[in-house]
Design a protein around this nucleic acid. Sequence first.
DNA 1: CTGAATCCGCGGGGATACTG
DNA 2: CAGTATCCCCGCGGATTCAG
Lengths: 127, 127
Amino acid sequence: MVTKQLLKGLPEDADLRRADSLAREIFSDVANKWAFLIIEALGERTLRFSELRKDVEGVSHKMLTQNLRMLERNGLVERKVHPTVPPRVEYTLTEPGQALRATVDGMCGWTHQYLGHIEDARRRFGA
Amino acid sequence: MVTKQLLKGLPEDADLRRADSLAREIFSDVANKWAFLIIEALGERTLRFSELRKDVEGVSHKMLTQNLRMLERNGLVERKVHPTVPPRVEYTLTEPGQALRATVDGMCGWTHQYLGHIEDARRRFGA
DNA sequence: CTGAATCCGCGGGGATACTG
DNA sequence: CAGTATCCCCGCGGATTCAG
């Protein structure tokens, strides 16, 4: 199983362990609510900071910048600054970002599909 | 786009809004690092609490219980208690859980595939 | 408009101890 | 072994301010 190797750090070899720890780090970075919502919001579009702020409901100024920096650092979004006044900054998913979006979309679909199941489960759990 | 409706709460109709807010809630619950790692660890296997604790590296006792409760509440994992002594509790992914695992697996694959890209991006960002 | 920096409160989350 | 409860602290994350 590919994921076992990815996530569990078999102590075979120094390089493998490095890659593995890096992978876990990336995983921790990206597997968070805001990152997902941002990726989803971007989709195939290019959006400005302020537009993202509106689209990603409930995100604070700070969290948005923070996550955008993180995504940029990992090469998931590209940040393009237009040196106008007032400044205009646009964010776009890179190819790796697009690839991950497929996963996020999958999760959105999943949520839709199982909304009913989940509501039921919650009712049952309430007891 | 299905996800837009899912994540942005179009104010059409009361039921739609309810479903949407629920969806966002679920999304917030599940889109977190520990939940993903737990789902990944469970895979097709059934694991005991202590086994999970070992497999999901770095998770604390508290976080594990907390996330397991959450996943159980949402019907993603089934919790089976064997009334023996000492007690034995086993966790298994339900069908919805399995379905979501496909997504999580996708993300693991993605991480593998783009490890190189990401390392490069980080180096570039360092400047 | 974008974003860095600062302040600060609250809660996430670890450690520990205790029950069944 | 599994789970709950308590304590406590650090850091997330919101609000605000200042800069470019």
